[in-house]
Structure formats: C-alpha cells, structure tokens
C-alpha cells in the first residue's frame, strides 16, 4: 500500500459518494433542466400531457421572446417575399409576420443596470463602512452595527407601502435610480457585516507597513487592503447581485414601464391563445445566465471567501 492510502478513500467509497452527489445534483437540477427544455419546445409540446421528455427542439420560444408578431390573412402571406432566416419562417408557419422587437431586451437591460448598479453601490459603500468599523474607534460602533443589521430583521416587503408612497412623492417610482437605491438599501447591511468580517481578518500590520513606507491612509487602503479583501468583496458582490437580480415583489410594485426589470416582465409574455410557455421558459433561461456567469467568473474567490476568512494564512 502506498503511503497516502490512509487518507485516500477506497474506490468503492469514491463510487458511492460520487453516485450520491450525482443523484442529488440530478434531483436539484431537474426543475432547471425542465425550464431550459421547455424553452426549446413548441407551445403544444410544452403543455402536452403526459409531459414530453423527448421532443423536437425548436427555437420558436426564443423567437417569440424577442419579437412581437401580427396575424395576417393567408393572401397577404402569399404576397410577401420569401422569408429571410429561420425566425421569419417559424412565425409565418403560424400565419403571422414579425412586427418588431419585443420589450424583453429592454427589460433585461434594466435588470442588468439595476442589478449590477445596486451591487456595485452596496459593495462600494459597504467596503468603506466596513473598513471604518474595523479599523477606527467609532463612538457607539457596536450599537451602530446592530442598527445596521436590524434593518434586515424585518422583511423588506413589510415596508412596501410606505416606500411606494415615498417613491411617488419623490418621483423615484419606475426609475432606474429609485430601484438601485432601494436594492442598495436592502443589501448594504449584509455588505457591511460580511465585509467587516473579512477586513477584520486582514492584519493591520499590512496597512501600517504601507503607512511607514510613505503612503497615505487612503493609499494604504486602496493598494494594500483592497487586494487583500478581494475574496470578501467578490463573495459579497455575488450575494448582493443574487438578491437584486431575483427581486420580484418591489419590482412589481414600483416598476411598470421604463425601469421594469425582467422578473415581473417574463411571466407577462402572452402568445396566441394565452400564456406562451416556451417564450416564458426561454426568458427564464436567459435570465439565469448573468448570475451564473458572474458567479463562475468569481468562483475562485468565492470558494475561498465563503469560508469567511477561515482559510487565509
């Protein structure tokens, strides 16, 4: 036996644990796979009973998601020049033509601007506040920190009505700025607390060394503390983004047009004769991607950061 056979699990153990992980992954991923699959079904396949697991994939859902269509008479359809591209072809097979782009792209961009904007603001303010709480003697700092945390004890939606009225007065309803501020307000307590934990873990000596080396306090913060806190900042950013990206209740209440985000928009996609499920599923699939990509990009940091500094040396 080799020297590390003591810690190395046996082949059987590996297979069993591997199998368990796969089984768990399948169970949790089924709803997700279902959504992705539905996005590639025809409306009929999407609602067929019993549900179809094997089907002919089509991009109809995606075409419907990105376009608005109008019905035309068969004669009009005849008189049109031959369809350009696959999208045109699919739409015509239903006796319709593409009238223009849908609002999905716009709503999606709203989500991006508001989601990433509020994440940036939360993490930016959170880092500064966390640094101050971590390094300086702040009068009543414990009480202040508790107060910051307490803003999270009540579900945000409990204050929906006052916020709705306040936003109307301030003209912030249905604006990007309004939604960014709102999500920042909700996220900032989390950001301050998480980041304070991370910054507490960074030895002060690093900054002090920079102060001695002739840098100002701000330079020391910027050049020495920030790179050290990258892990914490990345994981905090992911938590903030996930909340802001998926938030539904406030989005429904406070946005209806200009600043509407994707979550309230997607379920409202109507096709011929009711809800267009493949289009909804296509929208949901695309909606999942940014958080997924963001998380994968920051994965390296996240894996280390999620242990809240326990593994730093």
């Amino acid at each position: 036996m080799s020297a590390h056979s003591i810690t190395e699990p046996s082949a059987t153990t590996k297979w069993i644990s591997g199998g368990l992980v796969v089984a768990y992954a399948v169970v949790t991923l089924i709803p997700l796979l279902w959504i992705v699959a539905t996005g590639f079904k025809t409306p009929a396949d999407a609602i067929s009973y019993p549900p179809k697991v094997v089907f002919d994939p089509t991009i109809e859902g995606y075409v419907n998601l990105f376009t608005t269509r109008t019905r035309v008479t068969p004669e009009q359809l005849e008189s049109l020049p031959p369809p350009e591209g696959i999208a045109e072809e699919i739409v015509r097979s239903y006796g319709m033509v593409i009238a223009g782009p849908s609002r999905f792209g716009e709503r999606f961009m709203n989500s991006v601007v508001i989601g990433f904007g509020s994440t940036f603001l939360s993490v930016f303010l959170g880092t500064l506040a966390a640094y101050a709480f971590s390094r300086f003697k702040i009068p009543l700092s414990d009480d202040l920190l508790f107060f910051i945390l307490s803003t999270r004890m009540m579900p945000p939606i409990a204050v929906a009505i006052p916020i709705f009225l306040m936003y109307r007065q301030l003209g912030l309803s249905d604006t990007h700025l309004g939604m960014i501020l709102l999500y920042t307000a909700v996220n900032i307590s989390l950001a301050v607390w998480l980041l304070k934990g991370f910054i507490d873990e960074i030895p002060r000596e690093y900054e002090e060394a920079a102060l001695i080396d002739g840098y100002t306090r701000f330079q020391a913060f910027y050049k020495v503390v920030l790179p050290q806190a990258a892990t914490g900042i990345a994981s905090t950013a992911i938590f903030c983004l996930i909340f802001a990206w998926n938030e539904y209740a406030f989005a429904v209440l406070l946005t209806s047009g200009t600043a509407q985000t994707a979550p309230p928009f997607i379920p409202t996609i109507i096709g011929v004769g009711g809800q267009d499920w493949p289009a909804v599923a296509a929208g949901a699939t695309l909606f999942l991607l940014p958080v997924l990509i963001f998380t994968v990009l920051l994965r390296k940091h996240l894996l280390r950061g999620i242990t809240f500094g326990a593994v730093r040396k």
């Binding site: 030895p203 000596e205 690093y206 060394a209 001695i212 840098y215």
Partner: peptide, 16 residues
C-alpha cells in the same frame, strides 16, 4: 508615520 522617515520591521514581518 509617513513623514517620520522611519522604517519598521513587524513581528510577523507583514510582507505585502
């Protein structure tokens, strides 16, 4: 500290 022109070697070295 930055204006005193003093160098400091920390106990745990505090290398960046």
């Amino acid at each position: 500290a930055s204006q005193r022109d003093i160098a400091f070697v920390f106990q745990m070295f505090a290398l960046y």
